[in-house]
């Protein structure tokens, strides 16, 4: 991998220094992490959807901080969009395309829990098992 650092000076690499107070960014990131944890601590008092939204918003904010300043994207040319925009679209698109099939269950795919007894016959106990876990299902908001 020696050639990776080999061809550095070959062309004018714009090394003008952009002053960033990295420590300030770091402090902001730490505060964000604290907010995430606080969300978890006070999760009883917040509506659940607000909690999820808040936590993910904080994560996105942190990601943007890291990318903009630590990864210097703020100071890069337009190529950053050419590389990152299609990637982001593909990444989000993949998840969206998977959702109708995997997450929403057009066809039911709940295989019944089967009690297998001595290889002789199978007996369904799906009813009991499912009623036991019904509270879990409701936590999800149902499907």
């Amino acid at each position: 991998m020696s050639e990776i650092s080999h061809d550095t000076g070959s062309h004018a690499h714009d090394d003008t220094h952009h002053y960033v107070n990295y420590f300030l960014i770091f402090i902001a990131l730490c505060i964000c992490t604290g907010i995430s944890v606080l969300f978890d601590v006070f999760k009883g008092g917040i509506p659940k959807s607000a909690l999820v939204f808040g936590v993910m918003a904080v994560a996105v904010a942190k990601a943007l901080f890291v990318m903009t300043y630590f990864m210097h994207l703020k100071f890069e040319g337009a190529w950053k969009f050419i590389i990152l925009a299609p990637t982001a679209i593909l990444a989000v698109g993949l998840m969206i395309a998977l959702a109708p099939d995997m997450a929403m269950h057009y066809y039911t795919n709940d295989a019944p829990q089967v009690k297998w007894v001595g290889g002789e016959h199978a007996e369904e106990v799906a009813e009991t098992e499912h009623s036991e876990h019904s509270e879990h299902q409701h936590e999800h908001g149902g499907h």
Partner: peptide, 24 residues
């Protein structure tokens, strides 16, 4: 691997995955 599948007389599979996910 979905849960509760009986394959070749083995014990029912434990799980909850989705085979269709692989195809995607």
């Amino acid at each position: 691997i979905p849960s509760g599948m009986v394959i070749n007389n083995a014990d029912p599979t434990v799980g909850g995955g989705q085979p269709l996910l692989w195809q995607h």
